[in-house]
Design a protein around this nucleic acid. Structure first.
Length: 892
DNA sequence: CACTCCCGCCAATTA
DNA sequence: TAATTGGCGGGAGTG
């Protein structure tokens, strides 16, 4: 064959060697001098120019197509030298060539043929996905460039991206070492972790912080550089040592690539829009949205995306947003990362996407692969990116080392979230009206929901829903946006209509049993109960997708709780494969539908309050009360029944959840109630919006609660049965709090009969240390001191625990819990202050013990951590989820 | 016109 | 200093 080709090619010799030159040297005359380093070559034949040759050259010069054709031939031509020549690929190519034989005709290599993605595939085809140890090949840039017929510059683009994923490493000048995908899963895992730290937090975090951060500007910068300097992943591999390789300044392409991947890994939907990514990746905060810079970033992202696409890790999709459709990429690679290097990984999702050639390769190699992990995860890895450097202002938290970065990211993330939100809204059909406040959807950061929100189909009301997402990265700047919901909620709360509507959608089902509370304030709270996947499974009629999402979302939220323990199980329903991953992730995947796009959020911070408040206008207090009532009544009962019985395991829960109860019509919060009803077990969330900005943060808690407790609460206790509460950090002050009734703590036995249910505090929160003031207590504690809320109580009768006494009063007294949550004390209390915006520092407020339970926004920042922690804790399973909305607004 | 993204100049880094 | 790397953005190809 070769011979044949050659004959055909004839003169090519020179060409072969220097194909590049020919083609490239554009304008130039076809000089033969090899500009680029021509490497050697197999056969150095001196004389190149045969008559034919000239002709060809001319032709090529004349027509690009031809040129391409030529190149292609060369490219494809098996490389004699290379060891890999035998790879299957070559065959394919050959074939192609043959076909091309015809002259220059149509094959227009055109641009597509020269695309980086295609080039990358060719490149990848040369190397096995899972090379045997012996197979490791070193890659010579010059050689590859010549073989592929492209300039080196292009090879750098490819190699840099591959390097960011550890598929190759630089060994020396002009030399790279091919590692293949053995480590890919680990690398991705690391990126995911790092991404969660950075972005996950962001997601949750608020913008405001960023603003605040500005202060840190200096620090930040410092940080940034740090991070950049090192590749996120520094994988120093033993094998190939490239000692210095890393040093170069910021290798932006490498870093960008890693960050980009992180976004996918962190994103629930696994879809990231280009613009969002670009914004996030633009180092500076978006403030200076230099258009040109943005453009450049996007160009780079395309470059990266092309390579990632060739790797079968992502695929291009479009997300349709209000404004129109935007380019986006969806992660189709592995989502879970088993601890060990998985060989298999490639196959799963990824494999599908892989080009056949690769796939084949994979198959071949997979078996062989041992999976050695070369890379250790360096702490640095994580740190690097995330920026540890400066601590965030919030320093308060011990935990939050990363937060700063997060903040930054947050904003970005927020954007994403916003986008998502928007979409969601769109999907739902939103009621823009209601929410209009919501903002311009486009921008609103508020939309916190991006993904998760789901449940509510159209209604913004459900903002609450977002929780799940929130859990995620979503940061949601949304806070602001949520406000909408608030407004709605406020209204809704009374009328139940909204709920109903939702229910209609079917989404409501998701939420069934969960009661909502609305708080006027801007801040939102989310609480999570355990999750149950069940929800997911539930029927979602019309809204199907949404519903699913919502369900998932919800599930996601819980993830923390469930994840470890039952995550898989839970997840199972929803997501098939992922056992290991946290439910949330899985769910997310499923949800994939929603892209995270971001909209650029402008600064949500301020607006939020305003907006939110407006809606409700109402005083928070009022709403609260009502809400409470509502809540209690609706969902609670049912929940109680089921849950009470069993609270814990997710599985069980799930089952229960499946049971779904129809629910009661909740008078008060209709939608909520319904939702709750529908989903008996779902976790409850409370989402709080921070008044001010995101920064303030929202929290979600999942509460797992013992069912009983909850149920009781719900019914009887008007106040809340919600197990968990989130408090906005900053804003916390503004809010009051919520208490969750009892949780069941798996551990604790419940002492009091009264509290019986309550027990547990299993909030995942614990891990979080939060400054927030908020609080929750497991046991019931009502805080004596705080006597809060007068208002609430009436209902409370039964369980003390539940109460939330919202203290409308500004004072926020924080009650502390006496016992550590873990203990399972039954109840907790919270106190809040008013929504007034005064930011409270949580720290002061929060009880020492309880820290774990609550996190301030800042603390929240790390969802991941959170989750992890939770896992540890016993989050139990049970739980019903509830949502609460609170409309904050200043009380009045 | 918007989206993609190729191409290659040229600066920063290395050798 | 030359070579290697790689940031960057003009502007062309596509749809």
């Amino acid at each position: 064959e070769n011979i044949y080709d050659r004959s055909r090619m004839a003169p090519k010799t020179p060409i072969k060697n220097e194909p590049i030159d020919l083609s490239k040297q554009k304008g130039c005359t076809p000089e033969r001098n090899p500009i680029t380093p021509v490497k050697i070559i197999d056969r150095p034949q001196p004389d190149p120019w045969t008559p034919t040759m000239n002709l060809k050259i001319l032709v090529s010069a004349a027509s690009p197509d031809m040129r391409d054709r030529e190149k292609k031939k060369e490219l494809f031509r098996p490389i004699e030298n290379s060891e890999q020549s035998d790879t299957p690929d070559s065959l394919q190519y050959d074939i192609v060539d043959d076909s091309t034989v015809d002259e220059f005709e149509k094959q227009r290599p055109s641009r597509k043929q020269k695309s980086l993605g295609l080039l990358c595939q060719k490149f990848l085809a040369r190397y096995p996905n899972y090379p045997l140890s012996t197979e490791k090949a070193t890659i010579s840039l010059d050689e590859v460039a010549s073989i592929l017929g492209v300039e080196r510059r292009r090879i750098y683009d490819i190699v840099n991206v591959l390097e960011s994923l550890q598929l190759v490493s630089r060994v020396a000048k002009n030399q790279y070492c091919w590692h293949g995908r053995h480590n890919l899963s680990q690398t991705l895992k690391m990126l995911q972790e790092a991404g969660e730290l950075q972005y996950g937090e962001l997601m949750t975090s608020q913008h405001k912080e960023q603003d605040l951060e500005y202060k840190f500007g200096e620090q930040k910068k410092e940080t940034i550089p740090d991070s950049q300097d090192k590749p996120l992943l520094d994988f120093s591999e033993p094998d190939c040592t490239s000692a210095s390789a890393n040093s170069r300044k910021d290798k932006s392409l490498r870093i960008m690539s890693q960050k980009f991947v992180m976004l996918f890994l962190v994103s629930k939907t696994k879809i990231v829009t280009l613009d969002v990514a670009a914004k996030i990746l633009i180092e500076e905060t978006q403030d200076t949205v230099d258009h040109s810079k943005f453009k450049t970033k996007v160009r780079r992202l395309y470059d990266i995306a092309n390579v990632l696409t060739s790797l079968g890790l992502i695929k291009k999709v479009h997300v349709t947003e209000e404004r129109g459709r935007k380019p986006a990429f969806k992660w189709i690679g592995p989502v879970e990362f088993p601890e060990k290097p998985d060989e298999l990984r490639g196959h799963s999702p990824t494999s599908d996407s892989l080009p056949e050639t690769q796939r084949g390769a994979c198959a071949q190699y997979q078996s062989s692969v041992t999976g050695k992990q070369r890379f250790t995860r360096h702490s640095s890895f994580n740190s690097a990116q995330p920026c540890e450097a400066p601590r965030r202002k919030v320093s308060s938290e011990p935990n939050s080392p990363h937060q700063e970065r997060q903040d930054e990211n947050c904003s970005k993330m927020i954007n994403l979230t916003a986008v998502c939100r928007q979409k969601i809204e769109e999907d739902t059909g939103n009621k823009a009206c209601d929410t209009k406040t919501i903002l311009n959807s486009a921008k609103n950061p508020n939309i916190s929901l991006p993904f998760s929100l789901l449940p509510v189909p159209g209604d913004s009301d459900f903002c609450v829903n977002p929780l799940p997402q929130a859990v995620f990265p979503v940061v949601q700047a949304d806070v602001p946006s949520f406000s909408l919901p608030n407004g709605i909620s406020s209204q809704a709360s009374q009328p139940s209509t909204p709920a109903a509507s939702k229910t209609e959608n079917g989404k409501s089902t998701l939420v069934p049993n969960q009661p909502f509370l609305c708080f006027p304030s801007s801040s939102l709270f989310m609480l999570c109960g355990g999750l149950q996947e069940n929800n997911m499974s539930e029927p979602l009629p019309a809204a199907g997708d949404l519903a699913n999402r919502s369900a998932e979302a919800q599930a996601a939220a819980p993830p923390t709780a469930c994840q470890k323990r039952s995550s898989h199980k839970c997840s199972s329903p929803s997501a098939p494969a992922d056992d290991e991953e946290p439910a949330a992730k899985k769910q997310t995947l499923e949800h994939s539908d929603l892209p995270l796009s971001l909209v650029v959020p402008k600064k949500p911070p301020e607006s939020p309050k305003v907006e939110s408040s407006p809606g409700s206008g109402c005083s928070a207090a009022v709403h609260l009360e009502t809400n409470r009532l509502d809540l209690t009544s609706p969902a609670a009962p049912e929940i109680a029944n089921k849950e009470s019985t069993k609270p814990l395991d997710c599985q069980e829960q799930e089952k229960q959840s499946q049971n779904k109860d129809p629910d009661e019509p909740p008078p008060g919060n209709e939608h909520i109630s319904k939702e709750n009803a529908n989903q008996p077990f779902q976790p409850q969330y409370l989402y709080v919006q921070p008044t001010a900005g995101l920064s303030s943060f929202n929290f979600l808690f999942s509460a797992n609660q013992a069912p009983g407790a909850i149920s009781l609460a719900a019914n009887q206790l008007p106040s809340l049965s919600v197990p968990c509460v989130m408090v906005p950090s900053a804003a916390l002050a503004s809010f009051p709090l919520v208490c969750s009734p009892s949780f069941t703590s798996p551990l604790s036995s419940i002492p009091d009969g009264s509290f019986s249910a309550a027990a547990s505090p299993n909030f995942s929160v614990s891990s979080l240390a939060s400054p927030t003031p908020v609080f929750i207590s497991t046991t019931a504690v009502v805080s004596p001191k705080v006597s809060p809320a007068p208002s609430v109580d009436p209902q409370q009768p039964a369980h003390p625990a539940l109460h939330l006494s919202p203290v409308l009063t500004r004072s926020c007294s924080a009650v502390k819990l006496d016992s550590p949550v873990c203990m399972g004390h039954p109840v907790t209390l919270l106190k809040l202050q008013q929504p007034s915006s005064a930011p409270l520092t949580p720290k002061s407020i929060r009880p020492a013990h309880h820290e774990a339970f609550f996190k301030t926004p800042g603390s929240l920042g790390d969802p991941v951590a959170w989750k992890k922690n939770e896992g540890n804790q016993t989050r139990n399973a049970s739980s019903v989820q509830r949502r609460l909305e609170i409309s904050s607004t200043s009380p009045d």
